[in-house]
Design a protein around this nucleic acid. Structure first.
Lengths: 134, 134
DNA sequence: GTTTGACCTTGCCATAATGGTAAGGTTTAG
DNA sequence: CTAAACCTTACCATTATGGCAAGGTCAAAC
């Protein structure tokens, strides 16, 4: 059965917002969807699957740019899994980089916060440290 | 000695870019700096210190919004260190949240990547998983 | 004294991904 | 027939930063 959903229902089905779906279409991530006579977008189950794919990739932190590649690979029966894995690995490297950066901030700031009494007095190592020229 | 620096030198001294300094001024983070007759901004050593303060806070990931508060606290001799510590703790919570989120992505994606052969064949668990309805 | 290069100025546009709002058309249920 | 709940487009906002362009200024070299 070729059930066709309007964008609101497609949003509910996919876990995206209608706003995002329109945005993805406009930015070329999705092909333009067919419309009713009144101009309402319609989505079939294949397109719903695409939307779900996008949502899951977003949940893994992939950029829309990367997702465009992932979608293309997904739809290419001739793809080499090497390419997909490479994309994933690249993204993992990025994630690891961000984690490291955040952990560094965490470490430094935790040390500072620990040495701040946090009471009613104005003395505070955090401000003191931020004010140091280093 | 009241050495006055132009914005380029202030940028070098502080580790910020001239663009950022102008932006900080325009967004109210910094007071409007005095100008030469020709309209060039001039910075004295106190303002250079402020710029350094901002850079260090940025390095710890504080938003410009938070930095505005930090600057105000820094310049208030009546501050209570409690307030500073609270700000820091709040930011630490945010950092921890982001780290957790990234680590979750890392974990899931690593598992997927590990189960992708990454060779010349089209078979790929990563795409398979992204395509699953869950 | 003029030229040249390195500065400075403002203003506008771009990024990434999303949300909000407004003004207006459509469909459906009462 | 009307009201609610949809849909449409278009524009603006967010966050922090970079880039570019058109034009003014300053210092040094010629």
């Amino acid at each position: 059965m070729a059930t066709l959903l309007t964008i609101g229902d497609a949003a509910k089905e996919s876990g995206l917002s209608a706003k995002m779906i329109r945005h993805y279409e406009q930015s070329g991530l999705l092909r333009k969807s067919p419309r009713t006579d009144a101009g309402y977008r319609l989505y079939n189950s294949e397109q719903i699957n695409q939307l779900r794919f996008i949502r899951q990739a977003r949940n893994l932190g992939f950029s829309l740019h990367d997702i465009q590649s992932l979608l293309a690979l997904w739809q290419d029966p001739q793809r080499e899994s090497r390419v997909v894995k490479q994309l994933a690995q690249q993204h993992l490297d990025e994630i690891a980089g961000k984690i490291a950066e955040l952990q560094h901030m965490q470490q430094v700031l935790t040390a500072l916060a620990d040495s701040c009494r946090g009471d009613g007095s104005p003395h505070c190592h955090i401000l003191q440290q931020l004010a140091k020229p280093g």
